[in-house]
Design a protein around this nucleic acid. Structure first.
Length: 201
DNA sequence: TGAATGATCACG
DNA sequence: GTGATCATTCAT
């Protein structure tokens, strides 16, 4: 198999489609981050879709602000923000420029760089492997993703999403309301790989 | 269950 | 300027 650092990133066109479609298609894909000498690869297993200004649970609901401007960039742009003063969350903007839609990365399965991920987590006790990337804040912490990644495109040599060759059928994809969200509870916009041991919660 | 911790945004 | 809110996590 081709080394992840040599794999071509998914083209930005991939993200410039319907947000729910992109969210589901991201499951099973590889997120690759290279920082200094550290290389990380993980398989995305859980995401959430945030639909533009018609979605009352989305940061973009009230239009563009300084914080959420990356959401309105063209599909394929990273939107990173600080939550609760502690953790970062990473999204990829979807659809065309001007539409404030994005997909949040919530959980992933580590494929390489476990040791450095563990170190980045800064826990008292080492984390069980299943818990290493099992939440949006954990994922960014382990991979070293911070605000400097905001606005970056997802097709760079050291920051990209690649095809791992996984093919998921619709039956393997589960859905639920989004986590930590009080609004729009009736909409199932969280998507995940059923029975994956790597999910949040 | 609650504490930690800070940016953001709506309001005036 | 102020204050409520927040797409979370860990340890109690």
């Amino acid at each position: 198999m081709k080394l992840p650092e040599q794999s071509s990133p998914l083209p930005l066109k991939f993200y410039q489609r319907d947000t729910v479609t992109v969210a589901k298609d991201l499951l099973g894909k590889g997120l690759y981050v290279k920082k200094n000498k550290s290389q990380f690869l993980c398989e995305i297993v859980e995401v959430e879709a945030y639909l533009g200004e018609r979605d009352e649970a989305s940061h973009s609901f009230r239009g563009m602000t300084p914080r959420n401007r990356s959401m309105f960039e063209a599909g394929g742009t990273a939107y990173v923000y600080l939550i609760y003063g502690f953790y970062f969350c990473v999204n990829v903007a979807t659809e065309e420029k001007g539409i404030g839609a994005a997909v949040l990365f919530r959980a992933a399965a580590p494929l390489s760089g476990h040791k450095e991920m563990q170190r980045n987590r800064k826990l008292k006790e080492p984390s069980k492997p299943e818990k290493l990337l099992s939440g949006p804040g954990k994922l960014t912490q382990a991979l070293g993703i911070n605000r400097t990644f905001d606005g970056r495109k997802f097709d760079l040599p050291d920051f990209k999403i690649i095809d791992l060759g996984n093919v998921l059928s619709e039956a393997e994809i589960g859905s639920s309301p989004r986590i930590g969200i009080s609004k729009a509870k009736d909409q199932h916009l969280r998507f995940f790989i059923k029975n994956s041991p790597w999910l949040s919660r």
